[in-house]
Write a protein that binds this DNA or RNA. Structure first.
Lengths: 351, 351
DNA sequence: TATTAGCAGTCGATACTATAGATTGCTAGC
DNA sequence: GCTAGCAATCTATAGTATCGACTGCTAATA
């Protein structure tokens, strides 16, 4: 007897803590509702939302089980339930119905009617569109500069020991800088120097160029100086470009209830104003298309979540676009907007 | 009797509402203290701070007069007094002892050890230095592009119907853009086109160039197209550059007590995130070196103040630097830091 | 065995009261 | 003109009581 009841108990308990279809249905309804209203949800509300055929008592016991499993929390004992970070994670991984992105793509494409000539302008527009459409704060972090390929490079004499370096890259991005050159050089120098730098730099990626800085060792002094200045300039450029952050809609955060507390706002602002923290948010994203990070376990702040996607323009990665907001984020919408926008800009340069 | 007492009454009243030296002393002490502690100040505190020789009752009556004159407010009847916007205005105009800026200049100069080659880098550094040193949010708004003078301009053939326009301006700022050019042009075209554009643009200001767009009417087609593209590019550049905003230290706002209320933070963020509002803040500054705007009467938000200065690099105006914070701002410090920083960068290009 | 109705228990939110402490404004007297 | 003294005012805090929203448990039911 004793033995049997013990076994029975274990069976019951394992069953109780198994995430059945009904539990999934409850969890999904609860999170969907919480995302909209930001208030704890009671068993009665669940019943009204999606289970008119069972009583609230039944739902209560399911809620109790879900709480034991770590998916739900109660702000206090006589309150309804709210999703835990673990619940959002489960929702995002298993319950969220992906909205068909086509609609978003169509809507979003209207914003991009113009043909932009510069990556920077596309990015600025992208950030704004994402923020406006989702109603969350949006960021784009540039990256992937090491794969930029130099198409052409020219040295233009400006007189006064100055020369202008013009670089045309695979992104259509032009970087220019004035460098010092040795005194009293004739025009023949510029012709041969131009030939030299085209030979040395054209069709190479920034990565290759910066990785091999000693190629100039056996050159004549004047040429070596020019060469070194250009390598330095390119590596400065890479430094400055990688990690550049475009931000839009910081004040959107106030339209969400959890940010009525100053502490949360403080936390939020400290994240979006600290480049190091932003970079951390995309640190391990290299191989995923869409990455969702929720809560402080995943290097986002408490009560916060970040959805990020790789950002490709004309076939080449330019960085990551991301949306940052409360844990209670409308993940469906955000994912589909980010998907739509990235699709829209992906083809831009090909037109 | 009746007549006399009436006259006496008027005299008394007028005296009472005259801002005597003692009132000034009280007002200054009160504001200085409030700037630090952000709490209403009582008659006893004033006595302890700066007037041990008169009783608190006397100070009370002075405080009452200052309140009637509109310089002080009480959060409620049994509380101490706080400065009104009018009081800050009076303080800034009449009471504030200017700190000797030399000290700040010296301190600040250390930040600028490097010789920067680009205005943008100087600006970025400036914004950061100001924010770090004052512990308020700092902005620089670019402006005055119409006075930029074009030193040199070149057209570089890139092949594929593209040419690169390189512009060297009086600010050391280089602006480049790829323009479309007519097909099948030989190298002779580039030589003559280069001569033409140097003749037409060099040594002129952006203002002049943009104001007279019809100079090309009697040119050959190829040249006219190039000319128009360049004018368009320069005017795009002016548009994009004027009004560009650099911002630093938005989260500094939280270190000030009045921004423990979310409403104030909201207001603050809506100002610094709205370019139109920022531009309004420097709209009538053209003829003043330092401009202080306090409170919503002067197009700053409620409870907020802005100190702005003209920003000159190498003898030419590049825009305005400003500090934005609570009304209860440490005006002395802010004014002297802004003064110091602008002095430090003023000479930069001349070195 | 799963479900349910019913009910006691828990807790937050709200309202009301009382009290202590800070500061003022007023007044009579110096 | 200044001051001491005092009543009046108002906030902040704590304590108390009550209401209502949920839950968790239990015994009955299909």
């Amino acid at each position: 007897m004793c033995v049997f009841s013990h076994i029975l108990y274990i069976v019951c308990k394992e069953d109780r803590l198994k995430i059945s279809d009904r539990k999934k249905k409850i969890l999904r309804a609860l999170i969907d509702d919480y995302i909209v209203h930001c208030e704890p949800i009671s068993s009665n509300q669940i019943q009204a939302l999606c289970m008119p055929d069972v009583s609230s008592a039944t739902i209560r016991s399911e809620l109790g089980a879900l709480e034991d499993m770590g998916y739900l929390v109660q702000p206090h004992k006589s309150a309804g339930r709210m999703p835990s970070t673990k619940a959002y994670r489960y929702y995002v991984d298993n319950l969220m119905e992906e909205t068909e992105a086509n609609e978003q793509v169509r809507e979003v494409s209207n914003y991009f009617e113009d043909k932009f000539s510069k990556v920077e302008e596309i990015i600025r527009n992208t950030v704004k569109v994402i923020s406006d459409t989702t109603n969350y704060t949006s960021l784009v972090v540039l990256g992937g500069s090491e794969n930029i390929i130099i198409r052409d490079i020219k040295l233009v004499d400006l007189g006064d020991n100055n020369a202008l370096v013009v670089v045309i890259t695979s992104k259509g991005v032009l970087k220019d800088k004035v460098i010092d050159i040795p005194k009293n050089l004739d025009s023949k120098f510029f012709v041969s120097a131009n030939n030299m730098i085209v030979d040395m730099f054209a069709q190479k990626s920034l990565k290759e160029i910066i990785a091999a800085p000693n190629q100039a060792d056996d050159m004549l002094d004047e040429y070596r100086q020019v060469f070194k200045e250009i390598v330095l300039m390119l590596s400065d450029y890479k430094e400055a470009r990688d990690g550049q952050v475009y931000l839009e809609g910081a004040d959107k955060i106030f339209s969400h209830k959890e940010f009525e507390s100053v502490d949360n706002v403080k936390n939020f602002l400290s994240v979006i104003n600290t480049k190091a923290k932003i970079h951390q948010l995309i640190s391990d994203n290299n191989n995923v298309e869409v990455n969702i990070r929720i809560g402080s376990d995943e290097s986002v702040g408490d009560n916060m979540a970040v959805v990020s996607v790789r950002c490709v323009i004309g076939g080449e990665e330019v960085g990551h676009a991301m949306v940052i907001g409360p844990e209670r984020m409308d993940y469906k919408k955000v994912v589909s907007v980010l998907g739509g926008v990235t699709k829209a800009i992906e083809v831009m340069k090909k037109e």
